[in-house]
Amino acid sequence: MKYLTRFFCGSLALLLALSIGVPHGSACVGKTLVIGSTGTVQQQVLAQLLAVLIAERTGTSVKVADFSGHAAVHEALVKADIDMYVEYTGVGQVEILRKEAIADSDALFKAVKEVYNQDLNLIWLKPLGFANKQEAPAGAPADAAPVVRKDTLKKFPALARLINKLGGRIDDATIEQLEKQAAGQPPHKVARGFLKQNRLI
């Protein structure tokens, strides 16, 4: 009876308190990072490689979102709807920036990295180690590399160092192998297997 009385009194107090206002939404689940993909098998595997690596090593929640193509995923990145995706240097130079193709791989990477940084506040991290020949525009290679919003890197200072652990680790044969694996199992499992095998998670 005593408890019921206390309960009733408590409930009344609580009900009165209801009228005071709506509390804040609190943090410490942390921001959920969103990684984009153009929806191809290769892009889904690459997005999952980033997602699993980041989630496993930092504890940050990560989501993957598919887009209809490079223009759409780039626009989402610029609008901060996503935090990063893997782009190809030639596509960035010719299709996104609408600039002249550059044949030399290193010069092309340097060029897109500089313009993205200065004009778009987007950072190209280390190339992964392979080029996508199907998506390469005429006269330019298409080296794959993660592109990340600068403000995301500021919020997560360890992120660049972590993502750069993938730099140079995925050559032409490896990406081909990963894509083949993705025909028979979900991309996140393929990504997890690769990261585990390479002692990255």
């Binding site: 408890y3 206390r6 309960f7 009194c9 408590g10 409930s11 107090a13 609580l14 009165l16 308190a17 209801l18 005071i20 206002g21 709506v22 509390p23």
Partner: peptide
């Protein structure tokens, strides 16, 4: 009790 975006500012027993 059904609480929707509520605040508790007193002693209560649930």
């Amino acid at each position: 009790l059904h609480l929707v975006d509520a605040v508790v500012e007193a002693d209560v027993v649930w």
